[in-house]
Design a protein around this nucleic acid. Structure first.
Lengths: 339, 339
DNA sequence: CAATTTATTGCAATCGATTGTACAAAGATG
DNA sequence: CATCTTTGTACAATCGATTGCAATAAATTG
């Protein structure tokens, strides 16, 4: 048997009151007498009343839903970010609508439309790697829906964004590898349309320059940073006779290191390696992986808090300064030659 | 400047037609003449019309949103499941509303309420570990909203569920470890209220029984299967002088193995180890980890397809047979003594 | 050419909750 | 006791799309 939902009209009929009184009574509006409030609330409870979200949203023309668009869900980092976001917005009474662009602008555009159709109260976005034009987000802005970018943010735009200092992190890692004696460092990274990978490369170059190591184009390997890419890269590294590797993500670094060991290379003796993100895997593999601590949970929390502030206090989000999180370098066995 | 959304009334005014005609025209209803349809569709396009989802949902009293409640998002397996679900439902025009119970029944109950409030068309659920009573899902059933459980499913209920044969998998792993010469096998597992962990333990016991190895209560370590738990368990394993370990998840297995190696134990020579899930980490660590291939992506796809079939064809989901996926044992270095 | 059918389009109610305003009953004031 | 507040509740419009039914115009038929 299928029950149908209880409405304020049903409650009104039972208590012989007007629907408007029920509506106000449920919200403890002062214009409804206390005894009446009690009766209403008790009856609503008893009848199993649940407000119809659509009716409310239609009336208010907004929701308590936050949208989030990310390139892919299957990374530890992203799960952490989402966990951080959920933690904040749930306790503020919001829901999350999640979707993935799967690194494709086309899908990203569709996702933005869907988010708009569902009248999200705000949007958190980490861009697909091949997104260069961000026109599809401007419609939301026009409609007064705040958009906040995190991690993968639009290049050369003044839209509000939450990032880490990728250039500085790239520099720190590279400098550390050099200080550990590396003289030829390969950098494995992702699509250069993406700010994160571009900036890490910049940092890498700056460190080389500072230590007067010539930059070689052949030492920069651009791929999808997957497990397979790491294996492939390992072979290139051996051919290049490099003695240092800086990978822009831990999974790829781990698989690359695994493959290098397979080929008889000793880490860190023959080659020093560093990753990026501080994924779980970086702690468990042997030798443990030097990496950059990318605080996903914290990033999620901060992103959510900022967005909420803009939604609820109606401050123009475009006036927000960009936020840059600190990312400490975690030095572990994979790069430590002289303890 | 903030634009306000275009409605069918705006279009109607522009074309000097009735809103109802616009509504029908946009859906290419046969009662609207073809030229009028053209005019309507073109004008809608031009004015940037987007249907108000709430108005539609309110009218139809249903949505094209699928809800999903999982214990935690931060596992590779779960990301895969979600990717699989998204793949299927997106191409069918549905959205995903995701939330985590964080292994807490209380939060799970709240999540179910939220899902109901948002009138999800259907619900996919993997239970929190301490959920024993599933009364909170029955309301949805009563309201005609199909619910399908996957992975962590309710014990002793006839609700539709999608699982793997955990008992058989547990048996296969244990048997394999015994065949590789293990005589005292520790089983590290999770909350026994959860079907998956309970059944894997059953399989473990059956294998011991079959090979006439006495079952010892002290050899079953129940914890949260975290990285830390793995480290702690390693010490217990050494004290117990076990020579085999079957862990109910790869991450915990990896950290446990790491810690065992740290204490000078050789894997697989001194101790054979197997995990569960075939997470990325199982392939990258050294030695590579024997594990059970848990096909997350496939599970997500099947779950979504089944749910959709029930939503769209209105077949009573409770008549569906439970689905059980195959899970091959992947034998790798961590347990292979005699090649 | 009148009568009837058919093709289009419009009217108005509906979904459930909200909210400005009107109204009635109670109490306060002179 | 009449007038003015105050308090509590009700009325009715509104949000945007849908849909059964009515209405009009055009086309067909006898």
């Amino acid at each position: 048997m299928i029950n149908k939902p209880v409405t304020i009209y049903d409650i009104a009929a039972k208590l012989d009151l007007a629907p408007s009184t029920i509506s106000r009574g449920l919200k403890r509006h002062s214009s409804v007498s206390l005894p009446t409030q009690q009766r209403i609330i008790q009856m609503a409870e008893k009848m199993g009343y649940r407000a119809n979200a659509f009716a409310i949203n239609l009336r208010n023309n907004k929701t308590s839903t936050i949208g989030i668009i990310v390139p892919k869900l299957n990374s530890y980092f992203m799960s952490q970010v989402i966990a951080g976001i959920e933690k904040v917005i749930n306790s503020a009474g919001y829901n999350l609508l999640i979707s993935q662009s799967l690194e494709d602008v086309g899908k990203e555009i569709i996702n933005v439309q869907t988010m708009f159709d569902n009248r999200v109260a705000g949007l958190l976005v980490s861009l697909a790697e091949n997104t260069s034009d961000i026109a599809h987000f401007l419609n939301l802005q026009k409609r007064g829906i705040p958009v906040l970018f995190f991690d993968r943010t639009p290049a050369g735009s003044d839209l509000p964004a939450l990032t880490i200092n990728n250039e500085a992190a790239g520099y720190k890692v590279t400098r550390h590898l050099i200080e550990q004696g590396a003289t030829k460092i390969v950098h494995i990274t992702g699509n250069q349309l993406s700010n994160v990978y571009k900036e890490r490369l910049s940092g890498y170059k700056r460190a080389l320059l500072e230590f007067k190591i010539p930059f070689e184009e052949s030492c920069v390997l651009i791929n999808d940073l997957s497990e397979e890419a790491g294996i492939k890269a390992a072979n290139t590294i051996i051919k290049l006779k490099a003695d240092g590797v800086f990978v822009a993500n831990d999974h790829c670094a781990a698989s690359c290191m695994h493959e290098l060991k397979h080929h008889g290379k000793k880490v860190p003796e023959d080659i020093v390696i560093a990753g990026f993100n501080n994924d779980m895997i970086s702690r468990i593999i042997d030798p443990s992986l030097t990496t950059v601590d990318y605080p996903g949970l914290k990033m999620g929390e901060i992103a959510a808090k900022n967005l909420l502030a803009h939604i609820e206090e109606k401050i123009d989000i475009n006036l927000t300064a960009n936020i840059i999180l600190k990312t400490p370098l975690l030095i572990r066995q994979s790069s430590l030659r002289n303890p």
